[in-house]
Amino acid sequence: MPRKSLVARLRKGFIPLAAAASAPLFFAQNASANWISTEHGGSPNADAIHSLYLILMITGLVVFFLVEGLLVYTLWKFRAGRGHEAQQIHGNTKLEIGWTGGAAVLVIILAVVSFFKLGEIRDPPNSDASGYKTTTIAKDPGTNQKIPPDGKAMHIIITAFQYGWRFTYDDGDPSTPNVYAYRDLYAPTNTTVLLDITSQDVIHSWWVPQLGGKFDAVQGFHNWTWFKIPASKAGSVFRGQCAELCGRNHANMTLSVHALSPADFTKWLADKQAQLEQAKVEGAKQRAVVDAGETLK
């Protein structure tokens, strides 16, 4: 077969296939259930991952239908027993350079698009004016920490352990005790929350699908990420769980992120601080009793 007609035939077959391949575009946009795209909606980084994923997936689907279409067409068209002989073609340098170049261009485009989107996913934005008032965050050199442009964010230290999560709200003031909580993380909306993830034993992985990607908790390392829940999600609870095998109870190392409006969060934090203070007072009383040589009642 002459080369020209071969290429022309391919092109003829490809156009309807490309049209068919773009159909999922619709699908993806209307999909509410997450069977075809990543979970999102809780934070801008998760949304950006979602849109980047859609770009790659749709490109992937187009490639899939083109290649699979070519394969099926070839199998059907050139099946034996139709009275034709196999053509002894050993190769076609132009065609081969063509698809090598085509594949190269495609991956370069995808890489460029990904880097274009990277900032949105990796770099935390400023908190909104309506958000919870936060203080300037300290730099953590030698880590992958990224800080919002204005340098202000809420700082939560996540310590993972077999099998649970401890969340410490670092207020940046060493003289006052930090509020902490286990398993349930309460966070203000419209506020950039920086997460400083580490582990006290084996490797775990922080993952709340709707709030962005996962980050491993490794003993001796600090792994930074962030989320910023929009005001519309106040009152929502986001499900999360450990994503790195950490032992027998790995399946039940779950967590929840509760989104509170800044006002409610202020109340929650004050309440926690009061509890801490009270525990401190109680503790001091009990110590006095013990120090006096008496037994606790």
């Binding site: 990543t38 979970e39 998760a46 950006a48 991952i49 980047l52 994923y53 790659l56 995808l110 990904s114 989107k117 990277l118 996913i121 990796r122 992985s205 993952w207 699908p209 962005g212 990607g213 996962k214 980050f215 994503a243 790195e244």
Partner: peptide
């Protein structure tokens, strides 16, 4: 694509 892998890794 590592930003996507952040979401899909170990899933």
């Amino acid at each position: 694509t590592f930003p996507i892998d952040w979401e899909l890794h170990d899933s």
